[in-house]
Design a binder for these strands. Structure first.
Lengths: 101, 101
DNA sequence: ATTTATTATCGCAAATATACGATTGGTTTT
DNA sequence: AAAACCAATCGTATATTTGCGATAATAAAT
């Protein structure tokens, strides 16, 4: 990509906000989060039934949401229960609402 | 990419929100928008001075923000004055705040 | 009409994202 | 121990994004 070698120094919060936004930048991930908001929690398998996507694809979207900190997984063998990460959700909420004035 | 051929049908607003989020999913674009919120408006050249990025790169980021509807450009020959698109900004604001409960 | 100033677009290269099937890794049940 | 279940990861293919320099486009000033 021929990146600028120097890392750009952004204002406080800019990169964090961009990271959250990026994770929200795909309709499937928005839909997953909406689903989690309704159900409070769910298993990967539930989502595979809801969306016409392969299990591996769903899993990948969940990983991105987890990496961004928006959800967390709890082991409920043999399943994994995913919930919204309330702490980071609050941070994201306040960053977005501050951003939009 | 081997996409699903069928287009997934999402809930109302999901794709619009994802589109806004995607446009916000890069720190430079967040920074540009923050700059526009402060200055109310600015020219491409101003941003080229602020960020250590090539003029073409800045222009491309502006294009994405414009395509997403978050900004608009007004011809002030030979410059172009960019401002936040207030209508869509309000829509984005309300979509995000509804999304975050 | 030429030059200057400003911004957009083109063409390229490299990184990332999206999707899938197949495989692997854990855990529970048999 | 073997089989079954569920989810993550691997490998692969393709699409998109990000970035740059070079070039084109547009309008103003000379």
């Amino acid at each position: 990509m021929k990146r600028s070698l120097e890392h750009i120094k952004y204002e406080e919060g800019t990169e964090v906000l961009a990271r959250f936004a990026k994770a929200l930048g795909h309709p499937t991930r928005i839909a997953i989060l909406k689903h989690l908001e309704n159900q409070s929690c769910c298993f990967t398998g539930d989502l595979v039934d809801v969306f016409p996507l392969a299990q591996s694809t769903i899993s990948q979207h969940l990983k991105e949401l987890k990496d961004a900190g928006l959800i967390q997984g709890e082991l409920k063998p043999p399943k994994i229960k995913y919930c919204i990460n309330q702490e980071n959700w609050k941070i994201a909420k306040s960053l977005f609402s501050a951003f939009f004035d």
